[in-house]
């Protein structure tokens, strides 16, 4: 009798804990480590079963709500895993800043400018997936009126077709630096010499072909080339990733927002999983959540 009571209590305790859990811990791993004496942190999120999803808040809402307000309202009933600033911003003041480069938020045009030098075009789907393509390759595939179309958005006419597609599909699109594409480091040593802490989003495939997302945070100041080279090496040599589909930049400039939550929904206190800017100063946010 006593044993059955104990068992029941244990089961109810497990059920209570799992009901409290924000996400399935087997899909999300995080660690803080060091390579060549330099500290870095990695969040690894598996898209197996498509339970881990991405959401992008590209700009303030048309009603004037700021990005962080949009995020907080949305997150009130979501199991958030991690949140980070997204692409570069046009101004340090989040109230008037827009994302740098071409951007569409849920079908609403945020920035029409195709920014020179930012080769990555990321498309965030309502289903929680994200893909990025290399603008320089000129082979962006979309379905227009039920037909597959390959667009070169460097060409004005194709860019217009893409814009109309994004509006029609209520897609979220943003332009960013593309550092790795199809296992190739795209940056040259002659890139910007500015020193800053760096953060990257890499989408990879594991040995079983499942999509795995990584956020790699490098708190130590580095040039953009040094940072992306280090992050690529971490993926290859420390995470043993075979296939890096793409790796894009996450902003750590005027907006350096970064937070990680454990599987119980508590904010991880380790400073290697934290940015130094308050979320109220975010101009755009990329959020990982569990559903």
């Amino acid at each position: 009798m006593k044993i059955s009571k104990l068992l029941l209590a244990a089961i109810s305790q497990i059920m209570f804990v799992s009901a409290m859990a924000q996400y399935d811990a087997s899909l999300v791993e995080y660690k803080s480590s060091s390579i060549a004496g330099e500290t870095y942190s990695v969040i690894k999120m598996s898209r197996k079963g498509e339970r881990v999803k991405v959401k992008y808040f590209a700009a303030n809402a048309p009603d004037g709500s700021l990005v962080y307000e949009r995020y907080q309202k949305w997150a009130s009933n979501k199991n958030v895993i991690a949140v980070s600033s997204g692409t570069y911003m046009t101004d340090c003041n989040a109230r008037k800043a827009l994302p740098v480069g071409f951007c569409v938020d849920n079908g609403t045009i945020v920035n029409r400018q195709e920014k020179n030098g930012l080769d990555g075009l990321a498309v965030v789907y309502a289903t929680g997936g994200i893909v990025a393509s290399n603008i320089k390759d000129g082979n962006l595939s979309v379905k227009i009126d039920g037909q597959n179309a390959t667009l070169d958005i460097r060409n004005a006419f194709d860019r217009e077709r893409f814009l109309k597609w994004a509006q029609g599909e209520s897609a979220t699109v943003f332009q960013t630096h593309l550092f790795v594409y199809k296992n190739q480091l795209k940056l040259g040593t002659n890139s910007s010499p500015n020193l800053a802490s760096r953060r990257f989003l890499a989408v990879c495939k594991d040995e079983d072909g499942y999509v795995v997302h990584y956020i790699i945070n490098l708190p130590k100041e580095a040039t953009i080339y040094q940072g992306s080279d280090k992050a690529f090496k971490i993926l290859k040599d420390a995470e043993y990733v075979q296939d890096v589909v793409f790796m894009i930049n996450l902003d750590t400039g005027c907006q350096n927002v970064f937070s990680l939550f454990d599987s119980k929904g508590n904010k991880v206190a380790n400073k290697n999983f934290a940015g130094d800017t308050d979320i109220t100063n975010a101009s755009n946010l990329i959020v990982y959540y569990y559903e």
Binding site: L98, V100, V110, N111, C254
Partner: peptide, 25 residues
């Protein structure tokens, strides 16, 4: 909505962070 990203100098960044009390940053 063709947003121009003008270069923000170091001094301007410092001034902005001072004014908006972004001390930790």
């Amino acid at each position: 909505r063709f947003s121009v990203a003008t270069k923000v100098g170091q001094v301007e960044k410092v001034a902005y962070n001072l004014l908006s009390s972004q001390w930790s940053h």
